[in-house]
């Protein structure tokens, strides 16, 4: 099967790749572009470990085809930290021990960042429902919710 040429933008940088029409955006990110921050936990859109944003909208990259990235803007966990400094969400996740194994962390950070961009002052319930598509098996979510709420508070203060 012949491959498709795709031009796209990832974390602000232009990127080009060839992909099989059956390959998902997650496959392309991980296997063709070396961006292994997004994880495949299920491949069926149930776990959220592969969360990225596509033109600012939170998606499971396992449910998007690589070819669909043409002309779009993609943001992944690798682009969250602006430079040497971590993003407040990243710092708060470390500080609150909001991760144990860390496999779900990239997806949760991408999802939480998307939440705070829409809603800088979410309630606990809003955070819980927004993150309901991101499975974590280690933490029981307690420390994740606290880290997101704390990061939101810090970002509101800084804003």
């Amino acid at each position: 099967m012949s491959k498709i040429h795709v031009s796209t933008t990832i974390n602000g940088d232009t990127a080009e790749f060839l992909c099989d029409p059956r390959e998902t955006l997650l496959d392309v990110l991980r296997d063709r572009l070396g961006l292994t921050g997004a994880k495949e936990g299920c491949g069926t859109g149930d776990c959220g470990a592969c969360s990225v944003t596509l033109d600012g909208r939170l998606v499971c990259s396992c449910l998007v085809l690589g070819a669909e990235a043409e002309g779009r803007e993609i943001a992944t966990v690798e682009g969250i930290a602006p430079g040497e400094e971590l993003h407040p969400l990243q710092r708060k996740f470390i500080e609150h021990a909001a991760l144990q194994c860390g496999i779900c962390t990239p997806g949760i950070l991408v999802a939480a960042k998307a939440l705070l961009e829409k809603n800088p002052d979410p309630t606990e319930t809003e955070v819980r429902y927004w993150l309901a598509g991101n499975l974590c098996r280690c933490t029981g979510y307690d420390k994740i919710i606290r880290a997101v709420m704390d990061a939101a508070a810090e970002m509101r203060e800084a804003a």
Binding site: R30, T36, G37, V77, E78, G102
Partner: peptide, 21 residues
């Protein structure tokens, strides 16, 4: 005490290498 975990930055930046990485 409750210091930050040493692999914290790797885990929140997507840099940590898991089985499939």
């Amino acid at each position: 005490t409750r210091p930050d975990r040493p692999d914290g930055t790797d885990k929140v930046t997507g840099r940590a290498r898991f089985g499939a990485d």
